[in-house]
Amino acid sequence: MDSMTTKEIKFVDGKSKRIFASPLLERISRTHVAIPVIIFLLYATGIMYWSIRYIEISPGLTMLFSLFGLAVFTWVEYNVHRYVFHIATSTKRKKRFQYIVHGVHHEYPKDKERLAMPPLLSITVATFFFIVFRYILGDYAFAFMPGFLVGYASYLLIHYMVHAVPPPKGWLRTLWKNHAIHHYKDGEVLFGVSSPLWDYIYGTTHDSRVSN
């Protein structure tokens, strides 16, 4: 670990770690998962209300775009996890960035206060995506974005549960198993948390890596 990281990162206890020297930054870097989930669901509800009340889009098309938004989120989730959270740490700055946004979670996966982005960052990211989709889709973004945000909220809940509660029976058990492999066996595979779909499409399942 480089000297800057050693100086700035201090142990808090056996299950967590301090990553900012500033008490304020350290505090706002932590959150209970329920807070960003509520933010995203309220955000989605507000945009959906605006879409129904002020945007002339049929109910059927609204539902279609919302489902499309949900599907697109799973793709965004996969790629952000793979290429941003697991960015190559070729420089000290990249190493520091990767550790703050995701590395500390891999080191302390049971730290429940770092299983989701803090509220301020959650609102910023949601607004950024809304601006991007508004530019691409125009008024259809008001129908698309609620599905995207519901997908985001679902991802946060699933990510929290796979770390905090025992795996269930049935098909959902696969999500727990995949994420456990990603954390404890091979961090270069199984980037999809809420869905394994894109790991199959892009060939990043554990089986595909073993076979290569």
Rank of each mutant, 00 (worst) to 15 (best):
V84F: 15
W75G: 15
I55K: 00
L42M: 08
M63A: 14
E77R: 14
V72I: 09
T45Y: 12
I57S: 01
V72M: 08
G46V: 01
F73C: 01
Y78H: 12
L61E: 06
S58A: 10
M63G: 13
L67W: 00
G60W: 04
V76Y: 13
L61P: 02
V72N: 10
G69R: 01
Y49R: 07
W50N: 11
M48T: 06
H81S: 10
F65G: 00
Y43L: 08
I57G: 02
A71E: 09
T45V: 10
L61I: 07
E77C: 10
T74H: 12
R82C: 06
T74R: 09
S58F: 09
Y54Q: 08
A44K: 02
I55W: 00
Y83H: 15
T45R: 07
E56S: 14
M63K: 14
W75A: 15
I57N: 02
E56F: 10
G60E: 04
P59D: 05
G46C: 03
S51L: 03
M63S: 08
S51G: 07
L70V: 09
H81M: 11
R82I: 07
T62Y: 04
I55A: 00
L64I: 08
S51H: 04
L70C: 06
M63P: 02
L61Y: 14
I52E: 12
V80A: 11
A44T: 04
F65I: 03
L42F: 08
L70T: 09
S51A: 12
R82H: 11
F68G: 14
A44W: 02
I52D: 09
L67K: 07
S58K: 07
T74Y: 12
A44H: 04
F65R: 00
L42W: 15
I57Q: 02
G69K: 01
L42N: 06
H81R: 07
E56T: 10
L70K: 05
M63T: 13
W75I: 13
F68K: 12
T45K: 09
A44I: 02
V76W: 11
T45P: 02
T45E: 05
V84H: 11
F68I: 14
S58E: 14
L67S: 04
I57R: 01
T62H: 06
S66L: 04
I57L: 00
W75Y: 13
F73S: 00
E56K: 11
W50R: 06
I47D: 03
Y43N: 13
E56C: 10
S66V: 07
I57A: 01
E56D: 15
G69F: 03
L67T: 03
V84A: 14
E77T: 12
P59R: 01
Y49K: 04
Y43R: 04
Y43I: 06
Y78F: 15
T62Q: 09
R82S: 06
R82W: 11
M48R: 13
